[in-house]
Design a protein around this nucleic acid. Structure first.
Lengths: 232, 232, 232, 232
DNA sequence: GATGAATGAGTGTTCATTCAT
DNA sequence: AATGAATGAACACTCATTCAT
């Protein structure tokens, strides 16, 4: 109604104008939140703009379209976890300690980064259609496998790990035991009438995962093979 | 469906008109396919009607709206897996055999029913908002837990399973090791450059899961605690 | 502001509801008007809906999208002129009379149907991209060429027309002399400071066109070739 | 443009920075191309900037807005053809030769300058709304009419042209026979299944136009009026 | 003179749902 | 029980134009 906007109340912005980096980051963060909570087809460009306190047009200016914004989000979150993993520096530890740390790190990373779980669920729902179009992603993951291989090798040499364990298979199991629990806790809590989000439950789950993986890695006692594996 | 197609016959339909049960079933199956491949927000009522060869209006006639149709789909697929599990009749087998059978059944059920994985992913994405509104679901799952409890108890009594294992925690791990591998195989295949859908990979994964779970269930050898669990 | 729409004034509609043919026709006529005045890229689906007093969604229901609506418009106007031409029944007249009638009909059709001129201008601007995709168009135009060929043949036999005139080339000239004058009258009026839309100007132009074409068709007088064509 | 591309050179531009004239010309040429191929409402400021290798803001700096840029384009192309016509120097030739040269020049100018045809089509589509706002345009066209009047007068005096021919009407016909053929060749080729763009067709059309116009200009043979013009 | 960043009002199109028969 | 027609609220994306430097 009033043509003269009052001096005292200019609308606050998350990104100061004329600050491209901040604008871009604000959009990216808003997009992570939106895609996390709504998925790809459920996400709304309008809401992302509002969350980022940015003109909708800017999203297209910086990212092209919804799809490429989504791909940027994927690259962002994958880069984040792989970067954090490298910071673990497991190569200096004894194999068991190192393995336990990796397991616990993974578990806590999943707990602390629900957006990672959610976005991966979304992307797998789409059969990784968008991830496949990302160039930056491919080379990102070999350090992780390298670290795990190193632990397994040293552990086998010291006879504290069984030999012949495949690092990819193992990592998938480490991730699976935590990822599935967390990403599916909503239906699981409902059908089993147990609140899996409860801190005690989470803590117990963490120990369970460590135990399951380390039991699997333990070498078979000589002359005393596990009953489980000698079933006819 | 019609064995005698006459010349003047109108185009065949999945559901003969004036056959309520068949119409309802056709809609439900079409909805399962659509929600599986597109998710909740991505699913289109129009496409479901087309898939079911049914007038769009019929969906509202039989199911009320999109949300209630989706809930019916959830009830349908949960009923299917729990019914199949009861058919296993594990109570007559020795604990190790029974456990292995349950693990393998679960793994193969997941492989054979991608709609189950996909719909659960969708529902968990929505934090089980719709499942919670279903009355039929709650009582469906206790037989499964009952069966697992029975196996664990008998195994512990015979000293072939370690004592004190929680049946819900265990089932979650059994499911996790297969579910995560399958539902996330698209991103995993991409980032690790390995085709996880390959039949050999699937077979190896099945054996891996059995081994991981049975290793965990194996009792600790007396005087020979696993190195893994005694790390300082 | 008022949530209760008053009984007395339900918005009038051009097309009664539940009358598909009328709805379709209303949309088509509105589209002709809109594409005529704004062109393809300037036309607005919203305005067409408003003109047709129809819900915007109905346009997509009946025509698919803007492009297919535009193609339907093209088919409509081409069908109209070719149908009108067939009604001329020139085959019963003497060649000169028949030719004059065709010329005058064409001239007056152009005057009376500015939408025809405008839509053809639009379509040629797009290099007939859309016309080429129309199946219904191709066979529409041979009757016209057939009629002209008949006139030319009879005229040549009676020695009142020169022989060897190509009917397509001739029709293009007949159309050109009227079409260009009318479609370009706006810039021509401006640059030559003469109101070409004035009825007297239009009438004079009609006579001019007849004269130009019939002069061209007249056979060369024996031993008296036209000076124009023997210039060194 | 630059003959000595140095190694460290920044990407070449159509307009070197800080060179106002070149920048302006680059924009104008890019605008001609864009308006020619897309029309007024279809033209995009962004694309013009890209074509001109110039910052979008510069267009506003030099031309004010899209509309004024478009008007500048119109002025440019009209100036070009009228300037070329003056170069013909018809006043020194005999009337028939002069007329034939004017006809052929016009025909070839249209063939060689599709942007002229296209932009006039666009402008007439808008009923010359923008041309009317141009001051520079009005006085541009009298030399052409002067030249035609001179030819007609001399021809009539020498009895090789019929008397009383209106120079504006005649020029419109000369232009019409070529302009319509070329600007509408896309739909005409489609509906008559004949490739009007073919060089042979173009050549035949040129001869046809000359013949039609010169036939019309030829004086009526005494005592032998053309049959065409004595119809009751 | 020149530029990257920012904006608000559209654009064509889609969707779940309801109406009338 | 079954159907074609109709609706309004979104939705992703675009555009000419302006701001700040």
């Amino acid at each position: 109604m009033d043509a003269r906007p009052s001096k005292s109340a200019p609308p606050r912005r998350a990104s100061a104008p004329r600050n491209p980096e901040r604008t871009r980051a604000a959009i990216l963060n808003a997009a992570i939140a939106e895609f996390t909570s709504k998925g790809l087809s459920g996400a709304r460009i309008d809401r992302i703009a509002k969350r980022a306190r940015v003109n909708k047009r800017m999203i297209y200016y910086y990212f092209g379209d919804k799809e490429r914004l989504y791909i940027s989000v994927l690259e962002e979150i994958y880069t984040a976890i792989r970067t954090a993993e490298i910071g673990l520096n497991l190569t200096d530890r004894n194999p068991t300690d190192g393995m336990r740390e990796l397991i616990e790190f993974t578990w806590h990373y999943f707990i602390d980064h629900p957006e990672f779980l959610s976005l991966l669920a979304t992307e797998n729902f789409n059969r990784a259609r968008y991830l496949k179009n990302s160039r930056r992603i491919r080379e990102l993951h070999s350090p992780l496998i390298g670290m795990i291989s190193d632990l397994l090798k040293r552990g086998a040499n010291q006879k504290i790990f069984r030999p012949g364990v495949d690092p990819v298979e193992l990592y998938i199991s480490i991730a699976a035991l935590g990822f599935f629990y967390l990403s599916n806790r909503y239906t699981l809590s409902t059908i089993f009438s147990r609140d899996l989000t409860d801190p005690e439950q989470l803590s117990a789950r963490g120990q369970h995962i460590v135990e399951v993986i380390l039991d699997f890695l333990a070498p078979r006692p000589e002359g005393n093979p596990r009953p489980a594996s000698i079933q006819p």
